[in-house]
Design a protein around this nucleic acid. Sequence first.
DNA 1: ATACAACTTGGAGTTGACTCTAAGTCAAGA
DNA 2: TCTTGACTTAGAGTCAACTCCAAGTTGTAT
Lengths: 129, 129
Amino acid sequence: MTIKEVCEKYDITADTLRYYERVGVIPAVTRTAGGIRDYQETDIAWVENAICFRDAGMPVEMLIEYVKLFQEGDLTIDARANLLKEARETIVEAKKKYDIALEKLDYKIGRYEIAQKTGVLSWDDCGEE
Amino acid sequence: MTIKEVCEKYDITADTLRYYERVGVIPAVTRTAGGIRDYQETDIAWVENAICFRDAGMPVEMLIEYVKLFQEGDLTIDARANLLKEARETIVEAKKKYDIALEKLDYKIGRYEIAQKTGVLSWDDCGEE
DNA sequence: ATACAACTTGGAGTTGACTCTAAGTCAAGA
DNA sequence: TCTTGACTTAGAGTCAACTCCAAGTTGTAT
């Protein structure tokens, strides 16, 4: 699979894919004899993981660390497991913050909808509006 | 309330609070005769909202837009309501991505736990490990 | 009254994560 | 073979969101 096909499949730029490889967010991608990237299933699985974890707010630095440990082999199993658990906690915490914001938003949106229906345009909302 | 007290209350730096005010993420804060910030309940409510929505990944630009509309008065009620609904959708979408990442993580963590218990250190995981 | 810490401002610098540029190489069609 | 477009690299540039700095002011404790 060419870099272009991978871009299109995951809606990501070629520059980003090259960047991920360069800094180590994914391991070195398979190349043709001429040196052109030819993504195999494994390469694509790494790309998919990288995108998934970046979308969940994991820093590039953490993905690089995971790949580094992975490449060091079986002795890093514990370190990798810990990294994943840490990542899990980070995401769970972030999700909680998203829920708090959603609650606030739903409250505000409710207020606005009443205002729009009744034509009453002022109210008190956390002492702010 | 001084800027220091607000920092401590919300675990945020004074620089960030000043930055938020400068760029318009929050409206101008109440000042003492000498020009020193003296946060009132309303100011604090705005700070709290700003932190909450930033924590949920809303861009500073969107918060600035909301404050701008708010200051323009009642004619912007519809625009503000739309902004909030758009924000809501963005957060709901982001949360979905977090859930996908969590699923992947839980799967991997499960694999690692089995590996650690059984001592079997290699396996196939999405063709990657 | 005099230190001295905490505040003020405008503006420059940093960080993370890309994104773009220049100069060159590879590969498929005429 | 030649052109044309997609690929390659190293390295510079951009953007959002802070974060820091210098120079000056305020306010409290001796």
